[in-house]
């Protein structure tokens, strides 16, 4: 018997609540649109866009040290702007900056720039020794997101969740 699961963005929103992740900063991505919309609509969350992803890493670091948990939502290209600030702020100071990355550049990408930048993402995460997991199945979504956030908080270490097009459908172009 298979139970019907809610869409990925509903699962993610509920896991944020369960972990008291209240501050949502983002530079938008098309795939993240339903999640961003739902977060804006829910008064539990403080949700806003920043001009750059780097800024959001600063905001989340300050907020966490002062007692407010948050997460940064972005796309692959946004993550590629971050290695310097990740290495010198959350990694060096042991601050659990949490990130959710919509994976562009793979499984049917139409933009060659996105495809190239996508290949840098996991090597950067690995070289920063940062915990990261890719969510590709709806039935694993809750556990991976929940456990990753919990571990980040408990170990005071930054972490990244990558949302695969296998989960979200990705961004597709008409043939």
């Amino acid at each position: 018997m298979t139970e019907t699961l809610p869409p990925w963005h509903e699962i993610v929103l509920n896991v944020f609540k369960a972990n008291e992740v209240k501050l949502i900063t983002y530079v938008p991505d098309n795939v993240l649109k339903p999640l961003i919309q739902a977060l804006h609509a829910d008064p539990y969350f403080t949700c806003f866009a920043t001009a750059r992803e780097e800024e959001a890493v600063g905001i989340l670091s300050g907020a966490w040290m002062a007692g407010l948990r948050g997460i940064l939502l972005m796309q692959t290209s946004g993550f590629a702007t971050l290695p310097n600030v990740l290495a010198s702020l959350p990694c060096a100071f042991q601050i659990p900056v949490m990130m959710m990355i919509s994976e562009r550049g793979t499984l049917g990408e139409f933009n060659v720039g996105q495809a190239a930048v996508c290949r840098t993402m996991r090597p950067i995460l690995d070289s920063l020794a940062m915990e990261h997991h890719t969510v590709s199945r709806l039935d694993e979504c809750e556990m991976i997101v929940d456990r990753t956030l919990r571990q980040a908080i408990m170990t005071q270490a930054p972490a990244a969740l990558i949302l695969s097009p296998l989960l979200t459908g990705g961004k597709v172009v008409a043939r």
């Binding site: 905001i59 040290m65 002062a66 407010l68």
Partner: peptide, 25 residues
């Protein structure tokens, strides 16, 4: 006091995060 040792340009964002977390401070 928080002393930044890298992440050039993030003093204002870090302060903003603190300010959002503790509106009375």
């Amino acid at each position: 006091n928080f002393y930044m040792l890298g992440s050039m340009g993030l003093a204002i964002p870090i302060a903003m995060g603190v300010a959002l977390a503790q509106p009375a401070r």
